[in-house]
Simulated scan of single mutants.
Amino acid sequence: MSGNPLPASKLARTILLTALLGSALLTTTDILSAGASPSAETTCLLLLPLILALQVLHSAPDSSRAPLGRKCVTLAAQVLLTYLPLLLFRPFWTTTAAYLAGSLLLLLPPRAAWPLFGLVGLSMVIPTALDGGPLVESIRLAQVSLLIGFLLYGLARLAELVTHLHAVRGELVRRAVTAERLRFARDLHDLLGHSLSAITLKSELIHELIPAQPTRAVKEVDEVLSIAERSLADVRRVASGFRDLSLRQEVTSARSMLDAAGIAVQAKVDLGPLAPVVDTALATTLREAVTNLLRHSNASRCRIEALEVEGVIRLLVENDGVDAVHHDRSPYGGHGLGNLRARMTAVGGRLESGPWAEGTFRLLAEVPAQRPSSTTRAGG
């Protein structure tokens, strides 16, 4: 972002530089109209660009984060360029104190900057008093110095803030893109992992049925085609951002898959209407649980329960046949449960999984009950 600043950043810097040049022009006018000797005018006009350069350096974005040694050196140089000429040419050099006042606010911590800022303003009373001028003129010079210094400080901070906001906006855009990519990958894993596991299981069953039960094999082929069509629809829903699923439909699908695998299923669903975001999160959790069961266990029985208890939706999936030494050799495996935990956390719920009593494996998801009228469409 810094190498190619956006128009708002350029505009803020342009306004700041214009104000600095305007203040320098005001000082130049004071020098030329003061009637000083040619040598005095020449000296002041040569020193003024140095002060202006220091002020531009101090007004740069993040100048307050510069090393302490560098800040001390540049501030000391600006103090000398402000007060030494003031001792010699005080009638027309007082406006340069505004630069110093602004630099103090830009570079120093507030606890030290504001007292010194006020001290610079008070110091502008002294030159006029030494020349025997009226007190009102001394106060006016002090006010002008502080006002211009505060204005330069405000413009520099505004330019820095605009630049920072554009940088933050760019970072937010990058994070949003990353989050959407993760959402897309997670949804593909959750949706297609289940469907592809079902197709694999059905295909193995068809291979066994063809010699002995061709009629049933044809029926299973029809189911494989149906699963493939649903998988295509899932991919399209993920790509378009609509991913609402039904827990009740997933229970029916899970029962069909587990029956085909020869696993005894005990399913119990006692739920009222659910908000789409909760329904989708629980349906996806059941999909992943069944997929893991088929891939990573030798289960003979499985229990599925979806109940509402005291305002909390509880989904329980429990199976036997846990393989303690199983290791998924696929380099792309191992993200399913992490995705599910992220989904549960997003809807204010939690997920527990792991070995349970008597060689069983249990997955428990809990999420506060939400009704359809109080929730929008499910998000990633």
Rank of each mutant, 00 (worst) to 15 (best):
A281Y: 07
P49T: 01
A365P: 12
P273W: 00
S145Y: 03
V125M: 15
T200V: 08
K71N: 02
F92K: 00
L205W: 04
F184Y: 14
E250A: 01
L50C: 14
A24V: 10
V56H: 04
S64Q: 14
D279T: 04
I31Q: 00
I313H: 10
A76H: 08
E220R: 11
T280A: 11
G272C: 00
P49F: 06
G241A: 09
G118P: 10
E250H: 03
Q143H: 06
S39D: 13
A275F: 05
P49K: 02
F242I: 13
D187Y: 01
A19P: 11
Q213A: 11
G359F: 00
P85G: 00
E318G: 06
N298V: 00
S226M: 00
G35S: 06
F92I: 02
P134I: 06
T18A: 13
S103H: 09
P67Q: 00
E137K: 09
P109W: 00
D320R: 02
N319Y: 06
A53G: 02
Q55P: 13
I199L: 14
S373C: 01
T128S: 04
F184T: 15
R174M: 04
A261G: 14
V224C: 15
A365I: 01
D320M: 00
E229V: 07
A40G: 14
H194L: 14
S373R: 11
L48I: 05
A233N: 10
A299C: 05
L191E: 14
V218F: 03
T28M: 02
H326E: 06
A261S: 10
A112Y: 10
P214I: 05
R70M: 04
S353F: 03
A342Y: 13
R175N: 10
C72Y: 12
L104V: 02
T360R: 15
L151F: 11
L6M: 09
L116Y: 10
R287L: 07
S197F: 03
T14M: 07
L282I: 08
L107E: 07
G35D: 03
L192Y: 03
L152M: 05
S253C: 05
R303P: 13
F117R: 07
R174F: 05
E208G: 02
P115C: 00
A113I: 06
I263W: 00
S253Q: 09
